[in-house]
């Protein structure tokens, strides 16, 4: 499955997005106008304060139609707060926020009618069964009962919960609830789906199922915005990412761009049994472009892993284990948000 995602992403990059007609339209549209029409989300200087604490500190975002856009960031970075503002549930303290071409401050209800939302904490009605949860949620959107029931059945199928349709939500496992929440977010056939940690708590199989479902949505042209703590998820699903830290955007780009811009090509991971990592750092100084000391291991960022390893041994150090690997998004994340850097 992983390969499928990667292959598809490569294809998409090779060919311009959309069908032939859309491309022709684009080429005759002035850029400014296009930006307005095509951006599903456009935020300028977005700020959210709770009392004197600033949760989101002036961020700019553009998400074009059909893109899968990801937020990465440590706990408390302001990801969920941003998601709630985009979901038109939480009004921004300052800044401009336009969603689907409408103003979040004044058109909240109209925007929400066209959004799908998976909040970080499930908001299912545990007293009702799965089917009822979906149908009643559809009613909030003014969807007819008959259509609501049809879609509810389809969506339960979509997340492979059909056999539990009549169970109370109370009786579902956490991962099943998560899948139901995802199904519920699609009940109004949204053009933009906001997913706040969609796969947290899912077993690997369920996570792959969700990835595959999200990927299918993307192929249908649905715009996805998601937050995640799983770097593999970000790498699989997201066309573009921002790394948030302390309410600000620390970096932005495609997964590959981020890796190229913020870390070296290769990483050497060392583990030591005996010695204190603090003193190790000094001894490793100069073996790589950057040395990062984590509580359990030391990361050496280098463009040439082999010679770095040779240098480590040359200095007489005896790590318990040595691992040479390519740099990943996780390294970018640590680089940008970690606080144990020794440059």
């Amino acid at each position: 499955m992983i390969r499928t995602f990667r292959a598809a992403r490569r294809e998409r990059r090779a060919a311009p997005p959309g069908n032939g007609r859309r491309i022709r339209l684009d080429s005759v549209t002035p850029p400014l106008y296009r930006r307005r029409v095509q951006d599903m989300i456009s935020a300028r200087g977005l700020i959210k304060r709770y009392g004197d604490h600033t949760a989101v500190d002036g961020i700019d975002i553009n998400v074009p139609k059909g893109q899968a856009f990801g937020f990465l960031g440590p706990n408390g970075a302001g990801k969920s707060t941003t998601m709630r503002m985009i979901g038109c549930v939480s009004p921004p303290t300052a800044g401009e926020l336009r969603i689907l071409g409408m103003d979040a401050a004044t058109d909240g209800a109209r925007i929400r009618a066209r959004l799908g939302v998976v909040p970080q904490d499930d908001t299912l009605d545990t007293e009702l069964n799965l089917l009822e949860n979906l149908v009643i949620y559809a009613r909030y959107f003014g969807i007819r009962y008959k259509v609501a029931r049809e879609r509810a059945r389809e969506l339960l199928d979509f997340v492979q919960l059909s056999d539990r349709a009549e169970s109370k939500v109370e009786d579902l496992s956490g991962g099943m609830r998560r899948r139901l929440t995802i199904a519920r977010s699609l009940i109004n056939e949204p053009e933009l789906v906001m997913l706040d940690e969609p796969t947290t708590g899912l077993d690997p199989q369920a996570r792959h199922l969700v990835w595959e479902r999200l990927f299918r949505l993307k192929q249908r042209g649905v715009t996805l915005v998601l937050t995640t703590h799983y770097m593999d998820e970000a790498e699989q699903l997201c066309d573009r990412l921002v790394v948030m830290d302390g309410g600000r955007i620390a970096a932005e780009g495609t997964p590959r761009q981020l890796i190229e811009a913020h870390v070296t090509r290769e990483v050497v991971e060392l583990r030591f049994n005996t010695e204190d990592h603090g003193t190790i750092a000094e001894k490793l100084d100069g073996t790589a472009q950057r040395v990062e000391v984590l509580p359990d291991r030391v990361l050496l960022y280098t463009d040439d892993g082999e010679s770095t390893v040779a240098e480590v041994h040359g200095r007489g150090l005896q790590p318990a284990s040595v691992l040479e690997r390519r740099a990943t998004l996780e390294d970018v994340f640590l680089r940008l948000t970690g606080r144990t850097l020794v440059d």
Partner: peptide, 26 residues
């Protein structure tokens, strides 16, 4: 993804039927 309007009873904003939909939940 443009089917929303066809299957929606009424643009509930305009008719104020939103309260009825919330009522249905209870």
């Amino acid at each position: 993804m443009t089917t929303v309007s066809e299957n929606v009873e009424s643009p509930s904003r305009a008719t104020g039927s939103g309260a009825l939909h919330a009522f249905e939940h209870w």
